[in-house]
Amino acid sequence: MHIHKFEKIWLIFGITTLLVFLSVIGVSAFYLGNQPPSCLATINPEKVDTTAPFDKPGLKKVEGKEWDYELVFVASAFAYNPGQVEVPKGAKVKVIATTKDVIHGFEVAGTNINMMLEPGFISEYVTTFDKAGEYLIVCNEYCGVGHHMMSSKIEVVE
């Protein structure tokens, strides 16, 4: 099968660009550890309130871990618990969240925290809050009639 010379040049250029691009995100994912949230831990969605750490939602200082704080959220139609939380600026925080009923989203607007909360699974993401201010948490996965009322707030304070 004949391929025109210009088309060969075009495809070689395109495929090379593609390989460079894939290498960049590959190195970022596997060498720098920038993986999307992919926690494999499970939980009984009907017993969230009595299962640690979800029995005590909110911010907790931890010792001897790679992060300074754990920030635990429980989502259910149509609210997050806690409804508002303060985080010290510069703190390295592991956000841990799950849902008690249907699928919800967990997006902290203006940050890279964006994960799906699915019944039976725990979602986690480690991040550092290095800019003070108020960050809105929104549910970004349709969960029912009150979906757009479902929000919370993280206040990063000095």
């Binding site: 894939l22 995100i25 596997f30 992919s38 699915e118 699974f121 979602s123």
Partner: peptide
């Protein structure tokens, strides 16, 4: 963005996704 799937498998499918760029070009 979802839990329960190993990120290495996600990345493999990302690579396969990008292969459709070739017929698009």
């Amino acid at each position: 963005m979802e839990p329960g799937i190993d990120p290495a498998w996600k990345f493999l499918q990302v690579i396969l996704t990008f292969l459709v760029i070739i017929p698009s070009l």
